[in-house]
């Protein structure tokens, strides 16, 4: 029976077979919660037992889209996402390159990279909140002893400063992810291509830009997509370090969703926000893929 199938058909069959278990699990777990969130998003309702639900159609969505707070928050979230992911990519690529060139102690460095990820986020956040503290924080202590500042600075009292400090904490936590992914990708790259280029007289930078970077593109794409999705939904670190303050200066879109859903009990609005977040991330993922993904190279 199978012999009669063409190679492509056979591929398709195997393909579906390989994907099926994963798909079953993902859908089995997520489908119902996603559908119920979608359902809730078209009602105006507060949380509670036997509360009255008022059908509002797309009302929650249009209301959110017409609010200034929503767009300001989206703007802030985009800033957080692009600054942190951008810097993480640059630093991550540099660190991956460095490790790949096998400097003295590279194995130690590679293992060390795990640590920022291994420290639980809640501890991570508390640690940074403490480091940034105006009166007894390590940042002020260090900068003062190095002579960079002459007086302790209340870091977290200015919205833009607080935002950038949260980004710094996020970078510390997430650079290792990109660095390790790219380093592992570098390890799988064939060495002969570059050697050939070196023989042809290409210098290190040319070899990096023309050979290594294009080969790394799939890995960069994946790292970027995953990190962007994560960063756009950033919540935990912000909750612990600033609680969204000062003056909502670090409230991201996920934080707003948390406030609406859990703190305020505006279940409908919270669910609508969730879907708007998904749509935004989906759009960003598509843009990345259009720009970076070229499957027809195969």
């Amino acid at each position: 029976m199978q012999r009669k199938l063409s190679l492509t058909q056979k591929d398709a069959l195997i393909g579906f077979g390989l994907i099926l278990p994963s798909l079953l699990i993902i859908l089995g777990i997520s489908l119902q919660p996603i559908l119920s969130t979608l359902f809730l998003s078209v009602f105006e309702s507060s949380r509670g037992i036997n509360v009255e639900r008022i059908f509002v159609g797309l009302g929650n969505y249009t209301a959110l889209l017409s609010e200034q707070l929503f767009w300001v928050t989206i703007g802030r979230t985009l800033y957080f996402t692009f600054v942190s992911v951008g810097l993480e990519l640059i630093l991550g690529l540099a660190i991956a390159q460095l490790i790949h060139s096998h400097p003295p102690g590279w194995k130690f460095l590679r293992t060390s990279l795990i640590i920022p990820w291994a420290v639980p986020t809640i501890v991570n956040g508390t640690m940074w909140r403490w480091i940034y503290n105006a009166d007894y924080g390590a940042l002020n202590g260090l900068l003062l002893q190095l002579g960079i500042i002459d007086k302790y600075i209340p870091w977290l009292t200015k919205p833009d400063v607080a935002m950038n400090l949260v980004i710094l904490a996020d970078i510390w936590h997430s650079v290792p992810f990109i660095a390790l992914i790219l380093q592992a990708a570098l390890a799988t790259l064939p060495a002969d291509l570059e050697e050939a280029a070196a023989v042809d007289g290409a210098n290190a930078l040319q070899r990096f830009l023309l050979i290594r970077l294009p080969l790394l593109r799939p890995a960069i794409l994946v790292a970027l997509v995953i990190r962007t999705v994560e960063a756009f939904r950033a919540f935990d670190l912000i909750y612990v370090i600033t609680n969204g303050g000062p003056a909502f200066g670090t409230v991201t879109i996920s934080y707003l969703t948390y406030l609406e859903t859990f703190s305020f009990g505006n279940v409908g609005r919270g669910s609508a926000l969730s879907f708007l977040i998904s749509i935004f991330t989906l759009i960003m993922a598509f843009i990345y893929i259009r720009v970076l993904y070229r499957p027809e190279e195969n």
Partner: peptide, 29 residues
């Protein structure tokens, strides 16, 4: 492996769709 190397309908959609479940904040789920 299937999504990257095998050719069959909807594979790119599936690749993005799979990530889609990760795009909804867990707060709502």
């Amino acid at each position: 492996y299937a999504l990257v190397r095998l050719r069959f309908p909807f594979r790119q959609t599936m690749l993005i769709g799979i990530l889609g479940t990760r795009m909804i904040p867990e707060i709502s789920l």
